[in-house]
Write a protein that binds this DNA or RNA. Structure first.
Length: 604
RNA sequence: GGGGUCGUAGCUCAAUUUGGUUAGAGUACCGGACUGUCGAUCCGGGUGUUGCGGGUUCAAGUCCCGUCGACCCCGCCA
C-alpha cells in the first residue's frame, strides 16, 4: 500500500517538484476525455490530483472508473498550476498533484446523499448513514470542536487541582428525580441497577473522602421524552468542591467558561456574570431561564386590573390570580392574523386568551379599551413604558399560566421582531430559588433542585441549623435553596448547590419531603452514614456539555454536536437500537415480558 | 399520554388548493463525446409500491379512516 506522506491541505507550494503520496476520498471528478481531475478530500480539505495519460496510461484508466467516495492513495509530483488554472476558492488552489501511481483502496457504493454542506439532507437519512453525515464539513467540525472544548475544560480543571475521578455507571435506583434507565442483575434475580441521572451522591461521598476537588466529564442518563436540547444520554461537566461557599463556585465557573471560550472560540466573555434572584427573573421575564439578549420586560398590573370594568381582569383578581402585560415596541403593526397566531401560541401554556391594546395615532385601540378608565390606561402605559406604535399584551390568570405564557411569548416576539443578536453570549446566574414546591400529582412537597440542597432561611440569611430544622418541620415551603442555575442565551446550561453536610439537617429535609425513616435508610442510608463521619461543607455544579456546544457552534439541536444521537422516539436509526433480545437472555435475567407480540398473520 | 408539521425518483423538491391524459424539475446515477477543469461542458437515458393498509369514487399522489416513521411543542425532564 502507498503510505501517506502528507494530508491533503498540508501539501504546500514549497513542495513543488517533490513526490508526495496523498490519501482520501474522491470528492468529485471531472473527466475531460484526455485528462481527468479528481478533488481528493480528507478531514483537512481538498487537493486536486490530475491523471494525464501522457504521464501514466494505467493511472488514467483507473481514474476513469473512480466515483464519489471511493478511497484512493495517489503518488505524484506536486506541481504549480499555470496562472489561468489557479483555483482561488480552495487553499490548495495554487498547486496540484500529477499522478504517476494510484491505488484504489476501497470502492464505494453510490452514496445515498452527497457529502457536501451545500446539499441539505433529511435528518432521517443523516442519522441512518451517520458515518456519511459525519464526513460532511459541518458535523466533522462540530465533533472536532467538541474534542477541543472537552480538552480545554479538562486543562482548566486539571490546572486548578480538580481530580478526575470515575463513579459507577451501574448504581442504585432512587425514586427522586427523573425516570431511571434500569439494568437487570443476572446474579441477583429480580434486582436492578439504575444508570446514573448524574453522579450526585458519589461526588458528595468523594468530598467526604477528602478529595477536596472533583470533576468528571461524564455520561448521564434520564428516561424522559426527548427534545432538541434533550437526549436520553447526555454529557455533563460535573464538579464538586469542599470548604467552599457560593462565591467560590461562581468564581471558578466564570473563570472556566471565560477561559474555554477564549481558547477555543476566541471570544471574550465578561465576568462576573450578572446575578438575578428567582423572584426577579420570574417577575420580569416569566421564565427561570430568561434570554437577556433583548430587553422586553413584563409589567405587573394586578393592582390596576381591579380598577377596570374588564371582567377577565376583575375575576382574575378576585380569584387571587395575577395580571401582567408585555409591551412590544413597534408591535402595533402586527396584523389581526399575527395576533391570532400569538393567541394560539400562548394557549399551549394554558392561556385562555390574550388581550391586546395597540397604541395608534388615535391613542389606545382595542375591544377592551372601553372597559379601562382613562387614568388607569395612562398608568398602565406609564408603567409599561408604552408609546405610540407599540402593542401591549395582557395575560390574566393564575401565576403559573401568566409566567409561562408571557415568558414564552416574550421569546417568540423577540424571534418575530428579530431582536436577537446571534453573536452575543449572554450568561447569567439565577439564585435564591425556593427549596421546595408542592407536587399536585404526588400530593407532597418535592425538592426544586434536589433533596441534598442546603436550605436557607431568607435571601441573604442562611440561618442557624436550629432555625432551619424548625422551619423544615413547620413551614418548609418558606425556605429558600442554596442553589444556582447558569443560563446562557435563554437555555439552562447547568445548575448546582451547596449541599447539606450535617446528617440531622439531611434527615429533616428528607422528612419534609415526605420520606419515612425506613425509606431514608433504604434509599439514602449510605449517604446519611457518610455525613455522620465528618463530612466537610461542600457544594458543586454540573453543566450540559451538549447544550454548551450547541449554543457556541450555533446549531439548532444537540443532535448536531453528538456523534451518534437518538431520534425523538429514542431510537438509533443507524444501529436500530433498542431491539428485542432472545428468550435465553430474558430467562437468564428472570424477566418475563408483559407485552403482546405483533402477530404478522393478524390482518383485518 | 396530547397537539402540530411532514412523508412523491438515490437525494432535495414540484404536482395536493379545485380528484381527471403517460407523476415532473434540479442533482445524483448509467451510456457516449471531449487534454486544463474545478458547481466542467455537450448528446442520450427516468431508474417511482406517491411510507404502509383500508375506504369513498367512473377515476385518488390529491378526499376519508387507520397505521408506521422523522421533526417541533405541551406534559415529563430532582
Amino acid at each position: 500500500m502507498l503510505k501517506r506522506t502528507k494530508l491533503c491541505t498540508e501539501v504546500k507550494e514549497k513542495d513543488i517538484d517533490k513526490t508526495m503520496v496523498v490519501c482520501g476520498w474522491v470528492h468529485s471528478w471531472r473527466d475531460h476525455g484526455g485528462v481527468i481531475f479528481i478533488d481528493l478530500r480528507d478531514y483537512t480539505g481538498i487537493i486536486q490530483v490530475v491523471f494525464n495519460p501522457e504521464i501514466s496510461k494505467e493511472c488514467h484508466d483507473v481514474a476513469g472508473k473512480l466515483r464519489s467516495e471511493d478511497v484512493i492513495a495517489v503518488k505524484g509530483i506536486v506541481s504549480k498550476r499555470s496562472d489561468e488554472t489557479i483555483n482561488p476558492k480552495i487553499p490548495t488552489g495554487m498547486i496540484e498533484v500529477k499522478v504517476n501511481e494510484v491505488e484504489l483502496l476501497n470502492k464505494s457504493l453510490t452514496p445515498p446523499f452527497e457529502i457536501d454542506d451545500q446539499v441539505n439532507v433529511g435528518e432521517e437519512h443523516r442519522l441512518q448513514y451517520r458515518y456519511l453525515d459525519m464526513r460532511r464539513n459541518q458535523i466533522q467540525h462540530n465533533i472536532r470542536m467538541r474534542h477541543e472544548v472537552v480538552k480545554e475544560f479538562r486543562n482548566f480543571l486539571n490546572d486548578n487541582h480538580f481530580l478526575d475521578i470515575e463513579t459507577p455507571i451501574m448504581n442504585k435506583s432512587t425514586p427522586e428525580g427523573a425516570r431511571d434507565f434500569l439494568v437487570p442483575s443476572r446474579v441477583n434475580p429480580g434486582k436492578f441497577y439504575a444508570l446514573p441521572q448524574s453522579p450526585q451522591i458519589f461526588k458528595q461521598i468523594l468530598m467526604v473522602a477528602g478529595f477536596d476537588k472533583y470533576y468528571q466529564i461524564v455520561r448521564c442518563f434520564r428516561d424522559e421524552d426527548l427534545r432538541k436540547d434533550r437526549q436520553p444520554e447526555f454529557t455533563q461537566i460535573d464538579m464538586e468542591m469542599s470548604f467552599i461557599d457560593e462565591e467560590d463556585i461562581y468564581g471558578v465557573v466564570e473563570e472556566m467558561f471565560r477561559t474555554v471560550i477564549k481558547k477555543v472560540f476566541h471570544k471574550n466573555v465578561k465576568t462576573p456574570f450578572p446575578r438575578y434572584t428567582y423572584r426577579e427573573v420570574m417577575d420580569k421575564y416569566g421564565l427561570d431561564k430568561p434570554d437577556l439578549r433583548y430587553a422586553l420586560e413584563l409589567t405587573d398590573i394586578t393592582d390596576l386590573a381591579g380598577k377596570t370594568d374588564f371582567m377577565v381582569f376583575k375575576e382574575t383578581v378576585e380569584k387571587k390570580g395575577i395580571v401582567k402585560c408585555l409591551n412590544v415596541p413597534g408591535g402595533a403593526k402586527l396584523s389581526r392574523k399575527e395576533i391570532d397566531d400569538l393567541t394560539s401560541f400562548v394557549s399551549i401554556f394554558g392561556a385562555k386568551g390574550l388581550a391586546w391594546i395597540k397604541i395608534t395615532d388615535k391613542g389606545p385601540e382595542s375591544v377592551v379599551v372601553k372597559f379601562i378608565p382613562e387614568p388607569v390606561m395612562k398608568e398602565i402605559m406609564d408603567r409599561a413604558k408604552s408609546r405610540k406604535g407599540d402593542v401591549l399584551f395582557f395575560m390574566a390568570d393564575q401565576p403559573q399560566v401568566v409566567y409561562d405564557s408571557l415568558g414564552n411569548l416574550r421569546n417568540k416576539l423577540a424571534e418575530i421582531f428579530k431582536l436577537i443578536d446571534e453573536d452575543q453570549l449572554n450568561f447569567l446566574w439565577v439564585h435564591n430559588f425556593p427549596l421546595m414546591e408542592y407536587d399536585k400529582v404526588e400530593n407532597r412537597l418535592t425538592a426544586i433542585h434536589h433533596p441534598f440542597t442546603h436550605p436557607k432561611r431568607a435571601l441573604d440569611d442562611i440561618g442557624s441549623e436550629k432555625d432551619l430544622i424548625k422551619t423544615l418541620k413547620e413551614n418548609p415551603q418558606d425556605l429558600f435553596a442554596r442553589s444556582y442555575d447558569l443560563v446562557l442565551n435563554g437555555i439552562e446550561l447547568g445548575g448546582g448547590s451547596i449541599r447539606i453536610h450535617h446528617r440531622k439537617l439531611q434527615e429533616e429535609t428528607f422528612s419534609a419531603l415526605g420520606l419515612k425513616e425506613e425509606q431514608m435508610k433504604d434509599q439514602f442510608g449510605f449517604l446519611l452514614d457518610a455525613l455522620s463521619y465528618g463530612a466537610p461543607p461542600h457544594g458543586g455544579i454540573a453543566f450540559g456539555l451538549d447544550r454548551f456546544l450547541m449554543l457556541l457552534l450555533k446549531q439548532g439541536s444537540i443532535r448536531d454536536v453528538i456523534p451518534f444521537p437518538k431520534t425523538q422516539k429514542a431510537v438509533c436509526l443507524m444501529s436500530d437500537s433498542p431491539s428485542e433480545v432472545s428468550e435465553k437472555q430474558l430467562k437468564e435475567l428472570s424477566i418475563k415480558l408483559d407485552i403482546l407480540k405483533a402477530d404478522p398473520d393478524q390482518r383485518s
